[in-house]
Simulated assay, not measured.
Amino acid sequence: MATLPASALLQRDKKTYQIRITPPCGVVTADELRQLAEVADKYEVPLLKITSGQRIALIGLEEEEMANAAEEVPFRIGGHYIQACPGTDWCKMGQRDSTGFATTLNEKIGTLATAAKIKVGVSGCPISCAECHIRDIGFIGTKNGWTMVIGGNSASRPRIADTLAEKLSDEEALALLDRFLAHYNETAKKKQRVARYVEEHGIEAIREAMGV
């Protein structure tokens, strides 16, 4: 029997499970959707749900069916998610290439080990359709570069993210992300989400410790 994914969630009935698959930046192809539909038909998935983080949840399968289905879906399961808007590829408001940058982030940190799970928003303009200010880490595109924000949360203790740095090029934003994650992993409590971490330490102290 296939191994049940570590990220599988037991459902309300205490018998069936949910897994969430992660299309990179929420982007899917027609072929990938057909493959997903075939998996859903094969295992009689009762419910497919698009999540707020641009993932797709397969809900309501027995343990053995869920484990096998997880091996056949076209995207990775679990890990961090990177949410993105269409950016300059399609949106007339876009000022930065959010989908391209988010794709790079997905490859860079999608399965990276961190103190707690990380949710990332990447928006191509200050309207911030990728909800950057309520994500652990956010990148907001402006005509002068990326603004990086940290410490947002939209759960039972909502929090608006603080600005870590502004006017960043792609290379500078990626380098700053590396520095922040290294600092966070070294100093955060186990399973302490970024919002609670920023609350505890304060954005000014984090900036000073990182030399930002």
Rank of each mutant, 00 (worst) to 15 (best):
L112A: 05
I82R: 04
I19S: 02
L47P: 03
T147S: 08
P158S: 13
P24V: 09
E72V: 03
C129M: 12
Q192G: 10
T104W: 01
C91E: 10
P158T: 13
N185K: 08
G145E: 05
S7N: 03
F101W: 10
K191S: 14
A165V: 03
V73C: 06
F75G: 09
A30T: 12
G202Q: 10
E166L: 10
P158M: 14
M148F: 00
R12G: 02
L4E: 03
S128Y: 06
K14G: 06
I150G: 02
R34G: 02
E186N: 10
Y184F: 11
K189P: 01
E63C: 04
S123Q: 05
D136E: 09
N106G: 09
M66N: 04
Q18F: 08
I19D: 00
T104S: 03
A130P: 09
I77Y: 01
N185A: 11
K14L: 08
R207F: 04
F139I: 06
G94I: 04
P24R: 07
M148Q: 09
A155I: 07
D162F: 01
D136Y: 04
K49F: 11
E65S: 15
D170H: 10
P46C: 07
T3L: 11
E204V: 10
E204M: 13
P74H: 11
I109P: 04
E166S: 14
A205L: 06
M93P: 01
A130C: 07
A57Q: 15
S128I: 03
N153E: 13
E62P: 00
V212Q: 03
P46I: 04
A195G: 15
L9G: 03
Y17Q: 03
G121T: 05
L176D: 01
Y81P: 08
I21D: 01
T104P: 00
N153C: 14
E44D: 11
M148G: 00
G138W: 10
T88P: 06
G121V: 08
H183W: 12
K167M: 06
A70D: 00
L47H: 13
Q95A: 14
G60C: 06
P158D: 14
C25Q: 14
A84Q: 02
N153Q: 11
Y81E: 05
L164A: 05
G121C: 07
G94K: 04
V28Y: 15
L48N: 08
S169Q: 03
K143N: 12
T88I: 15
R12N: 10
A67I: 02
K42R: 15
R159C: 06
T99R: 09
M148P: 00
I206P: 00
M148C: 03
R196K: 15
